[in-house]
């Protein structure tokens, strides 16, 4: 008689339906990327990559998306703290407002930015008259547009982190003689660091791929406001093979960062 224990499978198989649906989901992401890779003019790859407009767009994309991420961090972390910790009337309205750019079509966001920061805009008028600051159709405008679209991801993630952390640790710090500022810098922020990190990463990914708000608010000037996604869209008309190569660059950067950082810092949690 055989021991039944040895016949027991070591790991349970996933339910078939679930595995199938999951596989289809994966294919939805993988196929378009495969299309890019297969159709890419690999022969001309180096030449296309070295083209001045491609390099320029790549540089601008990195500068703007990173600046937008920094801006989102500087403003978004305090905003998340206020939303998580301060009780005030209209808090849920504020919360809805700060997440609105996630559902708003980016083009509409761009129009809204123009109406606020444009030459004749709500605030833009005074910015120009008083300081001579002009945001639309400038690199700063690109950064603002990207931050507008990307910051909600950071705010949501950090707010969730602040809400789920053990607030009694902050109380323990108070009883040990730490004032509110010291509690914030030595206990709260270090404890939500993983949330800040993953929020910044999400923001940066979103900013790097930003198209609609940027083109509406900042236009499409090579070297000044033409980021990688804008360059791809334009090249599609004139030199599709270059567009494909630039797209692959975008994919490669995003993938490298997401695989390298996201898994390393987030999977372990």
């Amino acid at each position: 008689m055989r021991a039944s224990a040895s016949a027991r499978p070591r790991r349970e198989r996933p339910p078939l339906g679930l595995a199938l649906a999951g596989g289809l989901g994966a294919a939805l992401f993988a196929l378009p990327l495969l299309g890019l890779a297969v159709k890419a003019p690999w022969k001309d790859a180096l030449r296309e990559l070295g083209s001045p407009e491609g390099l320029e767009a790549l540089r601008l994309s990195l500068v703007c998306s990173l600046s937008a991420t920094v801006l989102a961090l500087l403003l978004g972390v305090p905003l998340a703290w206020v939303q998580a910790r301060v009780e005030f009337p209209g808090r849920s309205l504020l919360r809805a407002l700060t997440t609105l750019p996630m559902v708003l079509p980016p083009v509409v966001g761009g129009v809204a930015l123009l109406l606020a920061f444009g030459r004749e805009g709500l605030l833009g008028r005074y910015l120009f008259d008083a300081f001579g600051i002009r945001l639309p159709f400038t690199t700063a405008g690109v950064i603002l547009a990207e931050a507008f679209v990307a910051m909600p991801f950071l705010v949501i993630t950090v707010e969730a982190g602040l809400r789920s952390m053990n607030r009694r640790l902050e109380e323990a710090a108070r009883t040990l003689g730490a004032g509110r500022w010291r509690v914030l810098t030595r206990v709260t922020l270090p404890l939500v660091a993983p949330s800040i990190f993953s929020g910044a990463l999400l923001s940066w990914s979103r900013a790097l791929g930003e198209f609609g708000a940027t083109i509406t608010f900042a236009g499409n000037f090579p070297g000044r406001t033409q980021t990688l996604p804008l360059a791809v869209y334009l090249l599609l008309e004139t030199r599709p093979e270059a567009a494909v190569m630039l797209s692959l660059v975008l994919v490669a950067i995003s993938l490298a960062v997401l695989v390298g950082l996201r898994d390393r810092y987030l999977a372990a949690r």
Partner: peptide, 20 residues
């Protein structure tokens, strides 16, 4: 007097050591 200015020590039931 806020907690940080009281000469009081607190040992919590679940200790509340700072994990970081």
């Amino acid at each position: 007097l806020p907690p940080e200015r009281r000469p009081v020590g607190f040992v919590f039931q679940d200790y509340l050591l700072f994990p970081h």
